[in-house]
Design a protein around this nucleic acid. Structure first.
Length: 155
DNA sequence: GCCAACGTTGGC
DNA sequence: GCCAACGTTGGC
């Protein structure tokens, strides 16, 4: 099993929004970065665990909870929907360029594990999230890092 | 709102 | 294939 961190802006789609979806499940659409796409297309498997990260948050930036991969990658249909803001003329139903997975709500932390706490925790110093210049919206996480963040959320 | 650190596009 | 210009991400 693999572990991941997925970023979302809570103003756009928060952990509460995921909770309120039918079946608490939602397609992770709109990823338009090749590295992030490749993670979803090639490596994310059903049952993988996801740290649900609130970026650019008005309140607190950090990990807000846990989700689980509910469906493995399939073409991101918003990429050939002309009305979608994620429309990409180079993607088609015949030749999809972009892919997504479905994620399902697992739990909301009692409190946000903030980015600054993560930076301060020596056990998390190698997390790709806090490497310089990292802007990837989907990142692999080690099991030890995943467990550490879970532990921090309980404190 | 600013801006550093990217990634992408397109002319050549 | 190079690289300048442009667009985006995301912390602050």
């Amino acid at each position: 099993m693999n572990y991941w961190l997925m970023k979302t802006e809570p103003d756009v789609f928060s952990i509460d929004d995921l909770y309120n979806k039918p079946k608490k499940t939602e397609p992770w659409d709109g990823v338009r970065n090749y590295q992030a796409r490749n993670f979803m297309r090639d490596e994310m498997k059903k049952g993988d665990m996801v740290l649900f990260y609130h970026s650019n948050a008005k309140a607190e930036t950090g990990v807000a909870g846990v989700a689980i991969v509910a469906k493995e990658s399939y073409p991101d249909f918003t990429s050939w929907d002309k009305k979608s803001k994620y429309f990409d003329p180079k993607s088609s139903e015949d030749k999809p360029r972009w892919f997504m997975v479905d994620v399902k709500y697992k739990k909301k932390f009692k409190r946000i594990v903030t980015l600054s706490e993560i930076k301060e925790n020596k056990r998390l110093k190698d997390m790709r999230l806090i490497q310089k210049g990292n802007r990837l919206s989907i990142l692999p996480v080690k099991k030890s890092e995943f467990d550490e963040i879970l532990k921090m959320s309980e404190k």
